[in-house]
Design a protein around this nucleic acid. Structure first.
Lengths: 154, 154
DNA sequence: ACCAATCATGGGCCCTCACCTACTATCGGA
DNA sequence: TCCGATAGTAGGTGAGGGCCCATGATTGGT
């Protein structure tokens, strides 16, 4: 009944934007059930993947402002998912470490994300999903690299 | 230096969200140079692809609220890209028609979009870009279909 | 001992977007 | 003729996100 204009469907830019938005909102809705947002998951992921971070490192790694990370870290701390500790060497810094509860929570969040992924990519076969993921990874690496350069330019 | 957590890169949901956002913002930046937004382009596309619409039809086709389409159509009208005319049969309705200038403008916008697309998908070969587009089209059709159903449920 | 730089933190601002409501004009049927 | 439904229009609201600045504590170098 209400078909999307073919002019738009011919633009990969449009498709990326639209499907990306759908992915984002669906995942966000799932996380909201646990009183979380996408950034919370991203921070947890960074901590589990790369180990403890000083907040400044978290900010630069995730490409977020250092003033915004405070609240995110604070939320995770009150939820008991991370530990904050003043750095013994440099007492200005705060080292953030994931707790066992935090690691467990991340595993659950990842499971949620996979569920969303399955429903979202349902029309694709397994190998097609892998193909899509591989292509997107390369595109992501490219745009991420560009973001790095512009950030270094400041 | 600031690598993205592998946990996130493994989630297609995340990749879609991130690359989609990049696509969206880059295209939006281009359109902003012409004082346009994504919705303006979408409305123009619908009108050129499917011919004149009543505003209500535009809203339902594009999945946007009928109260929000007013300003978009208004902007396009003052720019001379579309014509608004009271329906002679039903004077409540307003029929929106693209002008020649509107068609020309859309062609330019599409060229802009292709430029963005090229820089965004630069790391992929031509056939890979086509592959990606095909996969995304199928995913988009799927999520769009789901949106239709939930809308019908109201 | 002093000074500039760094870090965490709190606060505020502004933009976008989606949604919701109220009002008016108009239509169609009972 | 009256009444409910529909279309366009204006306006408000609240969540979310990004960005920037001021402050206070602390550091390292001079």
């Amino acid at each position: 009944m209400s078909e999307t204009p073919p002019s738009l469907l011919g633009l990969t830019t449009y498709l990326l934007s639209k499907t990306g938005k759908a992915a984002r909102s669906r995942l966000a809705a799932r996380l909201a059930d646990r009183d979380m947002r996408l950034w919370h998951m991203a921070v947890l992921s960074a901590l589990v993947d790369f180990g403890p971070h000083v907040q400044r490192e978290l900010a630069s790694r995730l490409g977020i402002d250092r003033s915004d990370i405070v609240k995110i870290v604070d939320d995770l701390a009150v939820a008991g998912l991370i530990d904050r500790a003043r750095d013994t060497g440099d007492r200005r810094r705060v080292t953030v470490t994931p707790t066992p509860a935090g690691r467990a929570a991340l595993r659950e969040l990842q499971a949620e994300a996979l569920t969303v992924q399955e429903t979202l990519l349902a029309p694709l076969t397994g190998s097609e999903q892998a193909q899509l993921a591989a292509l997107l990874r390369r595109v992501h690496a490219h745009v991420h690299e560009g973001a790095e350069e512009s950030k270094a330019g400041r």
